[in-house]
Amino acid sequence: MLDAFSRAVVAADAKGSPIGTNELASLRKYVSDANKRIDATLAITQNVSCIAADAVAGMVCENTGMTQPGGNCYPTRRMAACLRDGEIILRYVSYALLAGDPSILDDRCLNGLKETYMALGVPTANAVRAVEIMKAATVAIMTETNSGRKMFEGINSGSGAQCQEIAAEAASYFDRVISSIS
């Protein structure tokens, strides 16, 4: 498992040279953006059940057969498993976002996930759709383009407009999830 700092270290070690001024420039940017990163992580952790529930509900609404007998979200036990997986994916995305590196997401969540879903008969096309909705919701909350309560409301530090870059980074982690299970 790596983070932005240890990723730089592994790259430098491969060359056998110490980390100097040039390599430190991007890490200094990472540190100077730390507050945005923390706000963005909180945007996920404080809205987990909302994001996951909306995504699964959206997926089911588009495929109403899923909750009927014979559907993949029938009975509720299987729908609950779906909600749980949504939260697990969000958890690993929040770790990756905090660390500034996708390795924890790859190693501990995505590695073997597609095979597991295929073995369990989970329809991956629907799973991908749920992840897409979670991505859209997460980005909207971070950039304050969501309807409802705004992330920075009543807080006079930061705004959604300043979180574009970090929201794009979060979106890239969701894209990783999508490409690994599709």
């Binding site: 498992m1 790596l2 983070d3 929040s94 770790y95 905090l98």
Partner: peptide
């Protein structure tokens, strides 16, 4: 960072 994340993951909780 990874120390913190690993501990959170071991407990299965969000940061």
């Amino acid at each position: 960072v990874t120390t913190v994340v690993a501990a959170a993951d071991a407990a299965g909780r969000f940061p």
